[in-house]
Design a binder for these strands. Sequence first.
DNA 1: TTTTGATAGTTTTGTTAAAAAAGTCAGGAA
DNA 2: TTCCTGACTTTTTTAACAAAACTATCAAAA
Lengths: 205, 205
Amino acid sequence: MAAVNDQQDIKREKILEASHQRFLHYGYSKTTMNEIAGDLSMSKALLYYYFPDKSQLYIAVMRKLATDYLKTLENRLNTFTNLKEAFTFQVNTHHEFIVNNYNFFDFFRLNEQNLPETIWQIVSEVHSAELNLLSNAIKSEVEKGAIKPVENPDEVVDVLMDALHGIRVGAISQKKTNFPRKEHLEEIHHKKLLLLDIFIKGLMY
Amino acid sequence: MAAVNDQQDIKREKILEASHQRFLHYGYSKTTMNEIAGDLSMSKALLYYYFPDKSQLYIAVMRKLATDYLKTLENRLNTFTNLKEAFTFQVNTHHEFIVNNYNFFDFFRLNEQNLPETIWQIVSEVHSAELNLLSNAIKSEVEKGAIKPVENPDEVVDVLMDALHGIRVGAISQKKTNFPRKEHLEEIHHKKLLLLDIFIKGLMY
DNA sequence: TTTTGATAGTTTTGTTAAAAAAGTCAGGAA
DNA sequence: TTCCTGACTTTTTTAACAAAACTATCAAAA
């Protein structure tokens, strides 16, 4: 029983890996089930044995990415010695995550509207975890007396995250391109850290 | 001579007004030259007598909007008694401008890429004026000794403006809709002011 | 100089057929 | 029973092309 399920799980995992590569390099719409099956030397029908349809497969890959990301955050939860460390960690990790999976997310950009509910669930899960990490960092700093009391930490973190997101959007929309190029990435990162710096000072005594 | 040109200018103005209304309510692509001509009870050909083509007409309207906006900013340049007043003014004015002309700008959202160079000129002109206003406010505060010296005021303001923009984008992209609804507008405005508050404190001693 | 009706030229929209991809299923192998 | 496939059906995308809508031009009238 367990062995059988192990086997299944291993195959599922293999499918997810192959799908991830395809989605990452070619995006959702330019990836066909035949290609994924081909990569794994299996029949397309078998994919449908393991996953109900293409969008569910995509969501499963996303779920996996999100889980890994959440694990990274959880590992460091409440391990920071000061606010700056926490915030910087969040910025760096998030940045890396987005950059590494940029093409993967074109499903979003193209569909924009009417995405499956599950996707929004995952997005909001990730968002909550990020918010939680930063919010906790603030609370613990307040307790330590390192910064002045914050009325509503969650709201403050929410604003910060929107602001950080804006840095990326702003830097991109100025240029003719929708893709952040290598040189922009440096600029974006630098701006984010500058914002962080001022923001943190704004929370101190 | 002068009278003739006055007449021309008045007609141009009328055309710009009618066009503005159409573009505002229906956007660029859903507005036809026939409709604008119809609103003014003139022939479509006459529009082409006054303006070389549709996109130039749109740009002329935009130019007018931008000029008004720039005037508003210029009027208050260097009239602020403190940073918060300056920043709040900028946020409120900008917010109002965007909200009032939201539909007008769908030309941007749809074309995104490959907009005429003139448009980018206007955008960058407005951006510079905004940046200038805030940057001056910072410099004068530094001179007064009200806040600590800022290494590169322009860069700081640039980051702030991206961040503010992010608040709007973030609040919108969470929801299913691309349009900011009435209830969002309140939320966005509130968040912007909160960000401003923290940001300003971050610049103080 | 200003204005227009007629019209030329271009872009968008609608239609349809072929191609490609998604998704299903009866049945074979393990 | 679980895992897997080839052949099949259904749905979606693409391509080609005609019709419609719109932009833009121009000769001529006011």
